Amino acid sequence: MGLMNKLVEVFPTRPLKVMKLKQEGILHQIKTIFAIIFCFALAMFMALNHYPGLIDDYKISRNPVVVDYHAEVKCNTRRIIENCSVKITTNTGQVIKRALPGGISKNTQVVTVASADDPSLVTINLAIDNMLRVFVITTVLTLLFMLPVWMGLVTILRIHKMRKVINEINGQRLTPTIVPIKLTSYGKTITAIYHAKNAQGVDVKCVANFNKESDGGPIIIGDATRGKCNALAIIGQNNSIPIILDKSLTRCDFSYNEMQALKDVLS
């Protein structure tokens, strides 16, 4: 008798309750939302702190004129990256502040420059000379901060989708099945990625995040090749998207005897 037939034979025929993984819980989603907000705030700070100045520098560079204004430059190093702030005071008392990532050499001469077309636009010569460098640094850092935002949103949407499936099949009679998955591991988290057809026949990408300590990861059937393998899952009566089971078999409310019967077949 094949493994699948043995699993079906010992699998409970009573309605089962499906538990959510730790990473599918509300607390984990709240943490993810806070991380998204934090990274988004950093990205916006980076963009709003530099892009408006870059736009002004570009306008000034089209028709620059040297002006005799007082410029105060202060530089500091934070986490290896040197940043400089420039405070320009015009003859009318107007104060213009600018931020320059990347630092300024001590021997570099700082000259204040204004736009001949719009004298209210003032900067320093180094800002114009380094427009491209500042643009690249700002863009790269902004995108780096936005990457976790995008990843976090994708994670939340996928978790919401899986929570919806779990809620739909909860309390139903479940059927065991074997699902091809791709495994990735980072820290204490084991991620199982797999595809399934929903009720409309559309291919859906599904993700299950297991905690190595509490869940132990998915139940692998057979051998794994380059992270690709088969895992034991369950399917509900009115939803074709499978839910991956964990090694500890705590994802369903199996009784002790039911757990032992499944473990005996899987061993």
Rank of each mutant, 00 (worst) to 15 (best):
Arg173Val: 07
Leu16Ile: 11
Asn209Trp: 07
Val110Pro: 00
Asp203Thr: 13
Leu147Cys: 08
Lys247Ala: 14
Thr138Asp: 08
Lys161Arg: 15
Pro180Asp: 09
Ile104Tyr: 00
Gly152Val: 04
Thr250Ser: 11
Val179Glu: 05
Thr225Met: 08
Thr32Trp: 03
Val136Ser: 09
Pro180Met: 06
Arg226Gln: 14
Leu153Gln: 09
Ile169Val: 09
Thr250Gln: 15
Ser214Tyr: 14
Asn238Gln: 09
Arg158His: 11
Lys106Phe: 04
Lys197Leu: 13
Asn238Tyr: 13
Ile156Glu: 05
Thr77Gln: 10
Ile26Gln: 11
Ile124Ser: 00
Arg226Ser: 14
Thr155His: 06
Thr123Cys: 09
Glu72Phe: 05
Val67Asn: 03
Ser267Ile: 15
Phe254Val: 06
Val86Gln: 00
Thr138Cys: 11
Val86Met: 01
Cys206Tyr: 10
Phe135Cys: 02
Asn230Lys: 15
Glu9Ala: 09
His70Val: 15
Tyr256Met: 07
His195Leu: 10
Thr177Phe: 09
Thr225Gln: 13
Arg62Phe: 06
Asp129Cys: 02
Leu144Val: 15
Arg133Gly: 05
Phe45Ser: 07
Gln29Trp: 04
Asn125Tyr: 01
Phe34Tyr: 13
Phe45Thr: 04
Arg133Ala: 11
Ala71Glu: 10
Lys263Asp: 04
Pro15Tyr: 08
Ile55Val: 14
Arg78Gln: 13
Asn239Gln: 06
Cys252Glu: 09
Val110Ala: 01
Thr123Asn: 03
Asn198Met: 04
Leu157Glu: 15
Ile80Thr: 09
Gly152Thr: 04
Asp117Met: 01
Leu16Val: 12
Ile159Val: 15
Leu7Arg: 06
Val86Ser: 00
Thr108Val: 03
Pro15Ser: 07
Thr108Ser: 11
Met259Asp: 08
Ile33Val: 13
Asp57Gly: 01
Asn239Ile: 13
Gly187Ala: 11
Met4Ser: 04
Tyr69Thr: 02
Glu258Phe: 08
Arg14Ile: 13
Glu168Phe: 07
Asn198His: 06
Ile178Gly: 06
Met46Ala: 06
Leu27Met: 11
Pro64Phe: 00
Ile193Tyr: 15
Ala199Lys: 13
Asn125Lys: 02
Asp117Pro: 00
Leu16Tyr: 02
Leu157Val: 04
Pro148Gln: 06
Thr138Arg: 12
Arg14Thr: 07
Thr112Cys: 00
Gly152Ile: 04
Lys228Ala: 10
His28Cys: 14
Lys87Ile: 15
Thr191Ser: 11
Leu42Cys: 10
Lys106Gln: 05
Val122Arg: 00
Ile234Arg: 07
Phe210Gln: 02
Leu126Cys: 03
Asp68Met: 06
Gly236Ser: 10
Asn170Leu: 07
Asp57Leu: 01
Thr189Asn: 07
Gly152His: 01
Thr89Trp: 02
His195Asn: 14
Leu174Ile: 11
Val66Ala: 02
Met46Pro: 02
Asn211Tyr: 05
Gly236Cys: 06
Asp264Arg: 12
Thr112Val: 02
Lys263Gly: 03
Asn5Phe: 04
Tyr256Gly: 03
Met131Lys: 00
Leu245Trp: 08
Phe38Cys: 06
Cys75Asp: 01
Ile33Ala: 13
Thr250Asp: 14
Ile33Cys: 09
Asn239Thr: 07
Thr175Phe: 14
Asp223Trp: 13
Arg98Asn: 03
Ile26Tyr: 15
Leu21Asn: 03
Ser248Gln: 12
Phe40Ser: 12
Asn257Gln: 10
